[in-house]
Design a protein around this nucleic acid. Structure first.
Lengths: 232, 232
DNA sequence: CGCATTTTTGATATAGGTCAAGAGGCGTGG
DNA sequence: CCACGCCTCTTGACCTATATCAAAAATGCG
């Protein structure tokens, strides 16, 4: 494992929430121009490279983040020191919500791909959400989405035989339009599915042999989504 | 499996939140007399018997619930029809929070023991929390607690060997003072830990033989917490 | 007391873990 | 530009934990 040093965030430029391409899905989607004028601090953006660490467990933090593109893993460490990935944060999803209730982050957040982020000062969110019904509701929906997602993670990615779990992961990572999918290290796959790197590797190899997936490049596959859904 | 019919809730009497014995931990803990006067509807209480169904998935609902005593299981059904228990709700914990973001419940909620509940009209919570900073924060903390708990469920109860998972479950259910624990059916234990009923039964038998737990009555055990924590 | 259900126990099968070796990529430095 | 070395990935052989199938024992209920 290469050692990654937390990037001293190159937060460049102001985000432009009103004209954001993710606007319809993002946390601030319901806010209007008037609301943005009330912000005391700018919304900043940055880009992370694979392996970069955004924050670590117990880091005191003042920002929530939205992923604009790319993929972030949220990692927990088990008593025996092994890592377990408890969530993948992808486009239009929010991380760091724990700061609304606590002062520090609960995970280690590491980029799996090149990732663009926006960051929001948690104080502003807190302040605005107390009187802005739209943001208030957006927060409730965000919490509910995360909780619901956590349960899906449990039932789909951590239950049943390895092939079924791997299929669920692939389906989750596959682009709905092109049926293409970018994978990452076998070790990371293992700590998502609670299987060993060897089993992860074997399962992927078997899927290749059976024609369920076809390599298009390094960790880049074409995925037969219909066939994967049919795996018992 | 006996068929359980949703009880037509015998909601008797008004709850008295200001003098509630759970007050320091409950959702409404921060509210003052003035706030309660603003409630348009009373807070009601009820008692459920083991096997009673509080609500089902997709039921439209207007209430959140707090468990005062007892234990509720929240169940999801897997594609293959088998059940998976995704959360246990015990004393002072809240369920039904999904109604703050959606109109219907996401689980089936079934009592495992005799259980006392309070119910809160979700509209009132929604309305009050938009301007009451204390309740607003209590909600954020409740969401965060549930999410954090969902991750613990994943890492402690769904990862690792069956003995370790069973030990974690027992420790979770054991009363800190008396080291006593009330268990439930092997089938339910299985669908918490993602193991078969047979493995659940065998594991418990082995714990008994090793003196890690001692039967005190029907599904009632004394638990050697120190020894259980030491299981690898 | 007798039947139905749940729990326990046993025998066997198998998926996945473990340990170990080899193959393939990729960056670094000559 | 090539060669070496370091990773990660793959594959193989073996072993163990848990699932599966089946039957007996225990428990609770009418």
């Amino acid at each position: 494992m290469p050692i990654s040093i937390p990037v001293d965030h190159a937060w460049r430029g102001k985000g432009n929430c009103l004209n954001c391409s993710l606007r319809s899905q993002a946390l601030f989607s319901g806010l209007i121009e008037e609301d943005f004028k009330q912000l005391h601090q700018p919304i900043d953006q940055m880009v992370m490279q694979p392996g970069d660490v955004l924050y670590r467990k117990n880091d005191t933090g003042r920002f929530l983040f939205t992923v604009r593109s790319g993929l972030i893993k949220l990692v927990k460490y088990l008593p025996d020191g092994r890592q377990r990935i408890v969530r993948l944060v992808c486009s239009a999803e929010v991380m760091g919500m724990e700061l609304l209730a606590e002062e520090s982050y609960r995970h280690e957040a590491i980029a799996l791909q090149q990732t663009e982020l926006c960051r929001y000062p948690v104080d502003e969110i807190d302040r605005l959400s107390l009187h802005n019904p739209v943001l208030h509701r957006a927060l409730m929906e965000e919490w509910e989405k995360m909780l619901s997602e956590a349960e899906a993670w449990l039932t789909q990615l951590s239950t049943g035989p390895a092939k079924r779990r791997m299929a669920s992961l692939l389906l989750r990572l596959t682009d709905g339009i092109t049926s293409e999918c970018y994978l990452f290290s076998r070790e990371d796959i293992g700590s998502i599915l609670s299987i060993t790197t060897e089993t992860a590797s074997r399962t992927i190899s078997e899927f290749k042999r059976q024609g369920l997936i076809k390599a298009l490049g390094h960790n880049h596959y074409y995925v037969d989504t219909v066939a994967l859904k049919a795996i018992p």
